[in-house]
């Protein structure tokens, strides 16, 4: 399109380009630079070669964090790929009041992870709703240590991540379901296929690309988990700090007297390495969809 002055487009993109440089490109470069130094929140910054990375190889907390991420991902993947699809099918039909249900199911998504974790922290507390009810029923004699056991805490964080994520992926599936050809459903129904059969042979193939997209999004967000674990463990990372995530370690080393910006940057690169595969896949999918 024509425009009179050559600099007009640049004027319009200037703020975004500035943000791109200052808050995206420069920090990316600086992360790599810092990772090879001993920079501290207060001073420091000498080149130390691979020291931060050899330290990371020996870091038991990082090993725990990576194990937690893998568990997180393996539990979240099947559940957050399938449950939101079923939910989307449930809210797809335009029944009276369906907008209310769609909005309500999306509410946990718009709530802050901190709010959600504080709510579930109270529900899962030793003296909270679930333990009280379970003891009243006589199912358990002692409260179940949902928030103080290394694995139960992790699974509690996983559960609330799934609870919070259902609505988000439901909406993504909902827009994909609109594109599944209706005649296919009709033809299958005429041929005598029941709802279950039609789900597997019409709906699932029809939203296959979206399922792949959702898988990638779920995998990456499982690797990036922070707030849920931080708030449920009250910032401690659980018993013995064994319920840390990689991002929690980055936060831990980014501030305060124990801070080590160089090591935190090295951990950031570890995070990049484990997320880059799924992220590149996502970008390819996006190109294909566009």
């Amino acid at each position: 399109m024509t425009h009179r002055r050559w600099f007009t487009p640049w004027l319009l993109v200037a703020p975004a380009a500035l943000w791109l440089c200052v808050f995206n490109i420069w920090p990316s470069i600086n992360t790599v630079v810092l990772a090879f130094t001993n920079a501290k929140p207060l001073g420091g910054g000498r080149f130390t070669g691979l020291e931060n990375f050899t330290r990371a190889l020996d870091d038991d907390q990082l090993a725990d964090a990576l194990l937690n991420s893998v568990v997180f991902m393996l539990v979240c993947l099947p559940l957050l790929v399938m449950l939101p699809l079923l939910l989307a099918i449930l809210v797809e039909k335009k029944l009276p009041g369906i907008m209310f249900f769609r909005t309500a199911f999306y509410t946990p998504v718009v709530a802050s992870a901190v709010v959600v974790a504080l709510i579930w922290g109270w529900v899962l507390d030793d003296r909270g709703l679930i333990n009280g009810f379970a003891q009243w029923l006589g199912v358990v004699a002692e409260p179940v240590p949902f928030l103080t056991d290394r694995w139960l805490l992790l699974f509690s964080a996983i559960s609330l991540t799934i609870w919070k994520g259902l609505g988000y992926y439901m909406i993504i599936y909902l827009s994909a379901l609109g594109n599944v050809r209706r005649e296919l459903h009709e033809a299958a129904a005429v041929d005598g296929a029941g709802p279950v059969r039609r789900f597997w042979s019409v709906t699932v193939p029809g939203v296959r690309n979206t399922m792949l997209l959702v898988s990638v999004l779920v995998a990456v967000s499982a690797l990036r988990v922070f707030s849920e674990l931080y708030v449920l463990s009250n910032g401690t990372g659980g018993p013995g700090g064994r319920d840390m995530s990689v991002v929690m370690l980055i936060q831990l080393y980014s501030r305060g007297f124990t801070g080590h910006l160089g090591y935190a940057s090295a951990l950031s690169i570890v995070l990049l390495v484990i997320t880059i595969g799924p992220m590149l896949l996502l970008l390819r999918l996006d190109r294909k969809a566009a």
Partner: peptide, 23 residues
């Protein structure tokens, strides 16, 4: 420019958060 905007999407925000803080 478009390519650079697109490239930032591959980077999870948490990866650059430390140097973001330094900036």
């Amino acid at each position: 420019l478009l390519g650079l905007f697109l490239a930032t999407l591959v980077l999870p925000g948490e990866v650059t958060i430390v140097s973001q803080y330094v900036t």
